[in-house]
Amino acid sequence: MHDQLRLTIDGVNVTVPQGSTVKDAIEATNQSVPTLCWHENLEPANACRACVVELKGSRVLVASCSRAAEDGMEIQTTTERVLNSRKLVAELLMSTSNADLAFDLQHLAEITGANPGRFSGGATWERPLQDDNSLYVRDMAKCILCYRCVQACGEDAQNTFAISVAGRGFEAHIDAGFGRELPESDCVYCGNCVAVCPTGALIGKTEWNLRQEGRWNEEGLTRTDTICSYCGVGCALTLHVLDNRIVKVTSPADHPVTHGMLCVKGRYGYEFAQVEGE
C-alpha cells in the first residue's frame, strides 16, 4: 500500500498522505478552495458545489471537499467549466437569499466575478423572521441550505436530530419537525447549529438585538478564550465582550474537547456573570 498519493494540480505535482481529500491536495499547493457548506468538524454535505474542480476522466466536475484523493489524479481548478459553475453557484444563491451576513458567499461572488443580479427577479427565500425563544432567532431568508446545522444537530455532534431538511426542490427548508415552533420541538438549545451557520440565518438573540439597534460593533469586541464554569468536561469558551458585557459565546473549532461545540449552559448560561446592582 502507498501511504503517499501523488496528484497533479493544474500541472503541479503534489504528494499528500493517504486519506486526504482532493481539497487537501489543492491546498497543499498553496491554493485556496472556495467553500460554503464545508466545515472542518462536519462530514462534507456536498451541497453548495462551490468547491468543484475538473478531474481528468470524470464526465462531471467533482466536489473537492469530499472526493478522496487517489494516486495519479489530474486536477484542474481554473478551467472555464470550473469557473462557470462556481460563479453560477454564487449567482443562484445571491438571487435567492439575503447575503448580508454571509461573508463566505460574498467572498465567492467577489472572486468569481458573479453578477448578483443576473438571476434575480424570481422566487426568493424571503420569509418572516422566526423569533420564538429567548436564545436565538431564525432568519431563514438568509439560509443557503448548506446542511451544516442539520449535521451539527445530528450525528456529527449533538445527536439530538431536532432539525432536518423538509420539503423538496426550491421549497426545501430547515424544519424542526412538522413545521413546529422550536419550543415545541426536540431542540435542546445547545446552539451548535448557530455556531456552524455561515450566513447569519441562525443567530444569537443578543447579537441579533444589538445588530437591530445598530450597536453591534466588530471593532469594539474583545474575544477571550477561557474555560466553562459548569460541569467537569472542561469546554473551551471564547467570550465575545462588548462594553464589558458578554454578548456571545463560541468555542474554538480546533479545541480537542469541544471541536467548536458547546451545550446550552456553556453557550447561553453566562448571564449570571453579569447580573449586577441588586
Binding site: 456536498n46 451541497a47 453548495c48 426542490g169
Partner: peptide, 21 residues
Amino acid sequence: FSDESCGQCVPCRIGTRRVLE
C-alpha cells in the same frame, strides 16, 4: 424538474427553478 429536485445541491435546487422562470 423544479418540483422533483430534492433540494440538496445549489445548481439543481435553484437552477431548476430559474430555468422554469
